[in-house]
């Protein structure tokens, strides 16, 4: 193990359910509480770019549990913020009169790309959650790659 792997202390080499839950609540927070603060901030930055980038591009219409339910399954893994966006979409936007919904609806490529941004964020967060749940496995992989016993 190289000297800069300061995140491999013995206390994080076990199953970490709290870190996994926190990783879903706020992407990167699971790693942050495990002491991997730089990694947690980097994960948060990347996930924020994907989630808020998708919302910026396509608006709240990119998260739709009713009409795009398969995409929503992937998106929901990105955390409660996505569930909140879906609530706004279902309870507020879809209750508007059809003429007023036009400004809130994204169509074509804009909707597709926005949906894809948030779905990819969700799928990446599955990896992040697994990594926070089992931090030792990732550290052992590093060690093998570096040719150094864990």
């Amino acid at each position: 193990m190289t000297s800069h792997d300061t995140d491999t202390s013995a206390d994080v080499r076990t199953f970490q359910p709290l870190a996994g839950i926190l990783a879903w609540v706020v992407p990167g927070l699971g790693h942050y509480v495990l002491g991997q603060r730089v990694r947690g901030i980097r994960i948060f930055a990347g996930m924020a770019l994907l989630i808020f980038g998708g919302l910026f591009i396509g608006g709240v219409d990119t998260v739709d549990s009713k009409n795009d339910n398969l995409w929503f399954m992937a998106q929901a893994c990105a955390g409660p913020v996505v569930l909140g966006v879906d609530v706004i979409n279902q309870k507020y936007v879809k209750e508007l009169p059809p003429a007023d919904q036009i400004a809130w609806r994204s169509l074509g490529h804009v909707n597709s790309v926005g949906t894809l941004f948030i779905a990819l964020a969700g799928l990446l967060n599955v990896v992040v959650i697994l990594d926070a749940l089992y931090p030792a496995r990732r550290d052992e992989r590093y060690a093998r790659r570096e040719g150094d016993p864990a």
Binding site: R39, G46, G59
Partner: peptide, 30 residues
């Protein structure tokens, strides 16, 4: 963040750049 960006339809293919950067940021962080 609530309504879609207007006038972005013709430039949709350029949106792959921030998408790729976001994926790379998370992947490399891990």
């Amino acid at each position: 963040f609530l309504q879609p960006v207007p006038e972005l339809v013709s430039l949709w293919y350029l949106l792959c750049i921030p998408l790729v950067i976001g994926v790379a940021m998370v992947y490399k962080a891990l």
